[in-house]
Amino acid sequence: MQGLVQKALGGHIRSIARIITMVESESPYTEEIMKLIYPHTGNAHIIGITGSPGAGKSTLTDKLIDNFKQQGKNVGVIAVDPSSPFTGGAILADRIRMQRHSVDPNVYIRSMGTRGSLGGLAKSTYEAAMILDACGKDVIFIETVGVGQSEIDIVKIADSVCLILVPGMGDDIQIMKAGIMEIADVFVVNKADRDGFERVVAEVRIMLDLVKHGNWTPPVLTTVAEKAKGLPELTQSLMDHGKFLSESREGLDKKLKRITIEVEEILQREIARFTERTWKENCTPELLDSLLAKKTDPYTVAGKILEMVFVNN
């Protein structure tokens, strides 16, 4: 495993792709890989791109790649699409709009299916971003699924969250309700060559006045992604936010919070794993019968299982 990870850290694309797969499929090597990766992380600027379907997330990402490349950055993209809850299959088609970058050695694009995760992200999106970070990407875009409430997960893993709105979709209000207004660091009104974009800009500004901010006031920018209009400004804003984080108390808080969450999540996951295993080992037909006959109750059983988990480990 060490060899593979070393190759990945050296920028070997196939190795990077392979270890992402291993982590994504919860291979037994996951822990080992992440331990090897971890010391090399912390250099990349992770940018979340979120917004409703049809807002132009992929097209905007495609153009952002150009702009960050011009700044001499090495770019990674993780594009998340929903998996079918019935078959587990997925069609991952976000990269269609970025295919012209696929042969660029300084751009790595990876599609992920949500695989049962309910948020706008896949279960291992964060780990994949860490891997790209460690393997030399300066900027990592994470394009979310884009379906309302669940989108707020992005704030847990991205340094900067960029929310894309469009005129005439009628769903801007939905997004505002979903609490995404509070988490976005940069607002973009895309397709700003259409009627009604000024109204969306004005609405966002009004909403922003109602929300409390620290020392960063989220800018509201307009773009026409298809024509690459407004992209230099957006790029600058995102870079400014990255700089702000690296220099401010907010940035440090964000990092501390993320590390805390990370540990908590690992704990939860491990406890869940042990608990589930212990439960499966002890879930005898006799026990189920006595539950059915009300000779015992689920609380007592669960209590006993927990006892076993903590005593055994």
């Binding site: 097209t59 069609i91 088609a93 269609i96 709009r97 298809e226 024509k227």
Partner: peptide, 10 residues
């Protein structure tokens, strides 16, 4: 004029 990119809905 620029070029069109297809819009995939599968």
């Amino acid at each position: 004029f620029g070029e069109y990119t297809e819009n995939i809905v599968l």
